[in-house]
Simulated scan of single mutants.
Amino acid sequence: MATIEAVLGDITTQAVDAIVNAANSALLGGGGVDGAIHAAAGPRLLAECRELRRTSLPDGLPVGEAVATGAGDLAARWVIHTVGPNRHRGETDPDLLASCFRRSLQVARAVGASSVAFPAVSAGIYGWDPADVARIAVAAVRAELRDQGAAGGIELVRFVLFSHQALTDFEAALAP
């Protein structure tokens, strides 16, 4: 079974195969985690995102879906972009949020990643309570790892949190 952990830190510095970007549907950078990842990754990440928009995602990435790009100058090999639901826009369905975590792990597995770092998707500017995100994220990751079985390839899932409160919320969700 894969290891699931929570740490306080900067997701852009994680030495994992893939980091998950809490992106907006445009995939062209933004604020919060998205802006930090784009800034740290450098111009190659934006170029790959622009190419996705030009080709396979002309209308942007839908909420709850995920797509991978290279990671530019980051330590990770891939960035998996997922669009969380925006509570301020009435996107309050927990299944949409859970889908971000499940689809990101499915995409990670498809590109061959064995270690993945997640932020608290939708817990920032998108208005979700970090405790709710923690509960939904941990349940979704556990379910996806269980469903993938031993042959799934994901060995480590790390939640990289931006605040002590978010870390506390994720630690509580991870407790047996």
Rank of each mutant, 00 (worst) to 15 (best):
G72K: 10
A2G: 02
L97I: 10
D34C: 15
L161Y: 02
G9L: 05
F159C: 01
A68I: 07
A173R: 04
G60P: 07
G32A: 10
S122K: 02
T12F: 04
V121H: 04
F159Q: 05
A139S: 13
L167H: 01
F159N: 01
N86E: 09
A71H: 02
H81D: 04
R50I: 02
G9Y: 07
Q106C: 03
A40D: 03
D147W: 00
A173N: 05
R50K: 15
M1R: 13
F118S: 04
A108E: 09
P130N: 13
G35N: 12
G149L: 09
E91N: 07
A68W: 02
H88W: 15
L46T: 13
S56D: 11
F101N: 02
G70Y: 08
Q106D: 12
I80F: 05
I11M: 07
T92Q: 09
M1C: 08
G84A: 13
D93T: 12
A39V: 00
V116C: 08
P85D: 09
H81W: 06
V141H: 01
E155L: 14
T55R: 13
P62D: 11
I19F: 05
R135N: 12
A2S: 15
R142A: 06
L161S: 01
A108G: 13
I154L: 10
P85I: 10
D10S: 06
V83R: 01
E171G: 02
T92C: 14
L156G: 03
A140C: 09
A40Y: 03
E48G: 09
D95L: 14
R50G: 11
L46C: 02
Q148C: 09
A68P: 10
T69C: 12
I136E: 01
T168W: 02
L161K: 01
P85C: 10
A22H: 11
D73W: 00
A172E: 10
G42M: 11
A113S: 14
R44G: 12
P62G: 05
L74E: 05
C49T: 10
A47S: 14
A150C: 00
L96W: 13
